[in-house]
């Protein structure tokens, strides 16, 4: 649904993966003697490195800073997975005139859409969610639909009847909709066909 999180995951996984492959690969090559025997047998932590860290006051604070930045990046990445763009509470309609504004509960709008869609032929149930941003709301619809029924007809019904009413209710020109169909058993036609056999 949220393509921004998807792109972040693509870039994040690729960069993190590359960094780990590079670090592990270089260590492996060194251990296997790619840069000579003496460098392979050298301890992982040499006295030179320890002395360097001890002699430069900035060393550990910089390490700490890098660790903090990495932790914050990880946290940002985690939160991006959990963030939902669902709209809650009241939607403030754009005021036409100067006299006040109209408020509309996003739940009421979603429920009205659900009952609209549930009344279409073949629909067994519908669940709607309004998603942000508030000025350009989107809608996500989960519809349980008869397995044997016409999916094109449902699409036409949603486009020609449900969406225009939703647009009118929200007072916007466009409401992008994403519909997830779940095909379920039930409904008369399927039963009839089965009894023929």
């Amino acid at each position: 649904m949220d393509r921004r999180a998807s792109r972040l995951n693509h870039v994040g996984l690729t960069l993190f993966g590359l960094a780990l492959v590079a670090a592990g690969g270089l260590a492996l090559l060194r251990g296997l003697g790619a840069w000579g025997r003496s460098r392979a047998t050298e301890p992982v932590l040499t006295d030179t490195v320890r002395r360097y860290a001890a002699e430069h006051a900035w060393f550990w604070p910089v390490v700490a800073g890098v660790a903090v930045v990495l932790a914050l990046l990880g946290l940002y990445w985690l939160l991006a997975q959990l963030r939902s763009h669902r709209l809650h509470g009241n939607l403030t309609m754009e005021p036409d005139a100067d006299e006040g504004e109209t408020r509309l509960s996003s739940k009421a709008v979603a429920e009205a859409l659900e009952s609209d869609v549930a009344a279409f032929p073949g629909v067994q149930g519908a669940k709607a969610r309004l998603m942000g941003p508030r000025r350009h709301p989107r809608v996500q619809l989960n519809v349980s639909y008869d397995r044997g029924a016409d999916t094109m007809a449902l699409r036409d019904d949603i486009r020609d009847r449900a969406i225009p009413r939703l647009r009118a209710a929200l007072g916007v020109d466009q409401v992008p909709a994403v519909v997830r169909l779940h095909l379920v058993r039930g409904g008369e036609p399927a039963e009839e066909r089965r009894t023929v056999r």
Partner: peptide, 24 residues
């Protein structure tokens, strides 16, 4: 959306970064 591998990687990064930062 690759949510599962991203969650694992993000958790690893956060945990490793936080542990190192706390220690240092």
């Amino acid at each position: 959306r690759r949510v599962l591998p991203a969650l694992v990687a993000a958790l690893l990064l956060t945990a490793a970064g936080a542990a190192a930062a706390t220690q240092v």
